[in-house]
Nucleic acid binder design. Structure first.
Lengths: 225, 225
DNA sequence: ACCTGAACACCGTTCAAGT
DNA sequence: ACCTGAACACCGTTCAAGT
């Protein structure tokens, strides 16, 4: 057995990095730990990401952003090193020329994207200060612009609508993730000072449903009602 | 001159940490660098934040979240060590019982909060996975719930409206910060593949105006129209 | 081309010690 | 109570070397 040529690839590295983020959190994603998980020396990663960890982060964000790529949820039992997923990667359906109405296309994107952000919510901090100029991001933006144009909007209104849609999904996910910790016993300080919060403390929230309804309202509001 | 008792305080530490974040970025905020900026040994910070850097991050997020506290923009010229801001800190106006109509109160909060997030956009990644259960966050939530109740909403609708408002501001800011890098020469890959993006590439965006209009639309949509 | 192993500068945090 | 200084385990990254 040669100790070289461990079958590393950018795809496999990103997938493993995401598994660590999902399972242990972003702070625990370390080049050395990532190497261990890939059964390789940490420095081997630099051969596929010469610009280092920041470039790896870019790759991770791209991976999550790319709705055309199948996403791997956190697998509890790990079949590990037996790499049966070698060829896989850029099978992007090759654009089957989606013929659904514009609003269905936008809804489908929004729900897919939300699901991916929630599944990898530990990577959310990475998303924030990375510019959305990857191919995956541009593909999504083009999809949005095409749909809103089809809906009858003109130039600046299309751009505004695209911005609003992106902001909506991101904002909803961030809110949901932040609130996720709260249902516990008590926010500690709900004494007499915050009566309205105390009164509404046990009102459950159906995030899924709220997202869907909010999205419908937004789309209606953006394209004349 | 005693080298002890350097006049350190949680407030001063947080302020200095924010200055580093705003000026150099979150990654450059280091306990040692923070110590240097405070003209103190790095380990002195641990006396005010015994739980370490994570607790400091909590403090930073609280500071930004607390709209009732005056915010310090990034000062170019630095009057430095001459601490003339000793007493300052928890002067929160002591609740002057805001008597403006509910929507004006919400608009004021939203614009203030947005401005703070934009001013300290480098700290946005910290906001994301911290639970909004600080006193400052609960005060804001109580303000929202009170306003929406005054607007005529009932139980679950109030909670939904509060969630939507928070998500809106966060989402808008994150979108704006992400897009901030883009107006440059070219997103690199606007060849023939993304015709709609290419066509709308030079449509400028007035974020301030768009935020205001979107907020108005949201408030109208949330409270019967 | 792909990976290893030692090395370097730096990091968060602990702890005993000073005043 | 408040801060220092040395120490420890760990980190990202470089570089020469192996195959």
């Amino acid at each position: 057995m040669s100790r070289n040529n461990a079958g590393l690839s950018a795809e496999r590295i990103i997938t493993e990095a995401l598994r660590i983020i999902d399972g242990q959190g972003l702070r625990r994603l370390t080049m050395r730990r990532l190497g261990d998980a890939l059964e390789v020396e940490a420095m081997a990663v630099y051969h596929h990401f010469p610009l280092g960890k920041e470039a790896l982060f870019d790759g991770i964000v791209d991976y999550i952003t790319d709705v055309s790529r199948a996403d791997t949820p956190l697998t509890p039992g790990d079949p590990s090193s037996d790499a049966s997923d070698d060829a896989g990667a850029d099978d992007a359906d090759d654009d089957p020329a989606d013929d659904r109405p514009w609003d269905d296309r936008l809804r489908a994107w929004a729900h897919d994207y939300r699901a991916r952000l929630l599944r990898h919510s530990g990577a959310l901090p990475l998303l924030i200060n990375r510019r959305p100029d990857s191919v995956a991001a541009l593909r999504a933006l083009d999809l949005h612009y095409a749909a809103f144009t089809e809906a009858g909007l003109n130039g600046p209104a299309v751009v505004r609508a695209g911005a609003a849609l992106d902001a909506y999904v991101t904002g909803a996910v961030v809110h949901e993730v932040r609130a996720a910790g709260l249902p516990g016993p008590d926010p500690a300080a709900v004494d007499g000072r915050f009566p309205h919060v105390a009164a509404l403390r046990d009102v459950g929230a159906d995030h899924e449903r709220q997202f869907r309804e909010g999205l419908d309202t937004l789309l209606a509001g953006l394209t004349g009602r």
